[in-house]
């Protein structure tokens, strides 16, 4: 029997989802649903379910929009953030959440990612980052580590990878964070803060793809891949308590950059107000 959460926030008629056994995407989708549920039930400052819009592009990650029972729009490959920009501009009260993947948001849609970050348009982008193109069967993506194998990198990947969270920070994102599948509770809290954040927020969530990335690179099954995350991805507080030596090869799970730059639609509303005032004179 599906849990109450599933009944509440998923479109039961459209389940089971299409992801492969062991895929991390279902966990991330669950984290998003829990985060939204907790925000809806936040007694002090609750958000309205009907104000949530889920926007996705194309790829494994992007199927999540169809399963989550909110306003949802499943767009074209790479363009989810651009569609989301139009939705947010048209109706700034909406919480516009983009569910995307490493290929969707940093390869074909990379331009939209950096420019939405630069504008500080109030979107929340959650990247299901599995280091591979899963939907098309295992080609290397912009986050596939150098030297790793993929169907289009049979001799090892020559490319050097993006760190998407740092990319967003570099592009001026006012909120950039990293989560993963193993640290679900931490990731849920990060997603909540990202949705609450007024400006542009990005959460780069490390997923796992045992079927294509894992198998090609001898990373073991889903359990072994999760164990790797447990050992090597470290929540912020613990990370900073570790010695320099122990940090080698590890990555932080948590908020990487945060500031309160003015949000784009609020700034634009000021322009509208000043134009109207000038007209009344």
């Amino acid at each position: 029997m599906p849990s109450d959460l599933v009944h509440l926030y998923m479109r039961i008629d459209h389940l089971p989802q299409i992801w492969c056994p062991g895929c991390g995407n279902g966990v991330i989708m669950h984290d998003v649903a829990v985060a939204i549920d907790e925000l809806i039930h936040d007694e002090e400052n609750s958000i309205n379910r009907e104000d949530i819009v889920i926007v996705s592009g194309i790829g494994c990650s992007s199927r999540a929009a169809g399963y989550l029972d909110f306003n949802s729009i499943h767009t074209t490959h790479g363009r989810a953030i651009a569609f989301a920009s139009g939705i947010k501009m048209a109706n700034p009260k909406l919480h516009v959440i983009v569910l995307t993947g490493d290929g969707d948001c940093s390869a074909i849609g990379g331009n939209h990612l950096i420019h939405a970050a630069r504008r500080n348009l109030g979107l929340t982008v959650i990247c299901f980052n599995n280091d591979i193109y899963g939907m098309t069967g295992g080609q290397y993506s912009p986050t596939t580590p150098n030297g790793d194998r993929a169907t289009t990198a049979p001799y090892g990947n020559v490319d050097r990878p993006f760190d998407i969270a740092n990319l967003a920070t570099g592009a001026g994102a006012s909120f950039s964070a990293r989560g993963d599948v193993y640290h679900a509770r931490e990731t849920i809290d990060i997603i909540k803060q990202a949705i609450r954040h007024k400006g542009f927020s990005l959460v780069d969530v490390y997923s796992i793809c045992p079927t294509y990335y894992g198998r090609k690179n001898k990373k073991g099954d889903a359990v072994e891949m999760l164990n790797w995350q447990k050992e090597n991805l470290i929540p912020t507080a613990r990370y900073y308590s570790m010695s320099e030596e122990d940090r080698v090869g590890k990555k932080i799970i948590g908020i990487l950059s945060f500031n309160d730059y003015p949000e784009y639609t609020e700034e634009y509303a000021k322009i509208i107000a000043s134009c109207r005032k000038a007209r009344k004179k």
């Binding site: 819009v53 926007v55 729009i73 767009t75 074209t76 790479g78 363009r79 651009a82 569609f83 989301a84 920009s85 139009g86 939705i87 947010k88 501009m89 048209a90 109706n91 909406l94 331009n111 939209h112 420019h115 634009y268 509208i272 109207r276």
Partner: peptide, 24 residues
Amino acid sequence: GGKFIQMEDELASIAAVLGASAAG
């Protein structure tokens, strides 16, 4: 009372237009 945005390219422009239209 309307809104203008200069996007990063034409791919984004038409996508934003469709998003805004869907939103009313």
